[in-house]
Amino acid sequence: MAEYIKLIDLTKCTGCRACQVACKQWNELPAEKTGFSGSLQNPLDLSYDTWTLIRYDEIENGSGMQWIMRHDACMHCDWPACVKACPSPGALVKTETGAVVHNPKYCIGCKACVVACPFDIPRYSKKEEKIAKCTLCYDRITDGKVPACVAACPTGCLKFGLKEQMIEQAHKRADAVGGAVYPSNPKYETHVLYIMPTEIQPAQLQHVNPNPKMPTTMLWWKNLFKPFTLLGIGGVAGLAALHYMIKGPHRVSEKEEGGEADG
């Protein structure tokens, strides 16, 4: 199966929240009780039942206030930190499409993925003792459809397609509007790309990691200390066996008899 990318063109988002609604509808997620918070952003954050939402940022720049609406959801990392952290096989899987999918059946609610994620995406439910997040509509894209959010988007802000084509399109569009493609770390690729308008730096937006990467502590944990645990146990056991064969056990009674003979 081919690899896909979802492209989010921030120059085209009008904040209509059709993606937010379509996500709820397709994934059969219940509505949340929300309140007035002085922002159009509603609900205020992602949750176990809200896998995507539009975030509204008001940014002061030279020419005045700029309003940025941003579709926020799982970035579907190519080398996902959440999958690396997950202790339960099958609970979080990077699929051949590039989509990183959670399976509630296997999730044990350990929350390691929530901590590991460089984009702060998985959300934990105390009640269900499980996590949930955007699946890039894995059930739709493997059936030849685009994700529900993309299908609902009326402005062409959200696009979905083959990886190579989308990367090409992203850079073309970024050049055309004088913006940049986010994220830009070649060592930490994602299956979701943003086209940031010229004047916007990722660090200016809420809930955006300006430099997403695999957490360093994760590399130390999984690539160093994890194998060291077995190496340490096996190595010391091996040394002990060697010691036993070379030096043998330290028997008290023999020494005692020797001591008495000396005396």
Binding site: A112, P215, T217, M218, W220, W221, F225, G232, I233, V236
Partner: peptide
């Protein structure tokens, strides 16, 4: 994040020494 790393690092240290202790 540090907690996850330190947890496993300390387990590596204690588990190795424990094998020596048992032997």
């Amino acid at each position: 994040r540090w907690a996850y790393m330190l947890h496993v690092m300390s387990v590596f240290a204690v588990a190795s020494f424990t094998i020596a202790h048992i032997y």
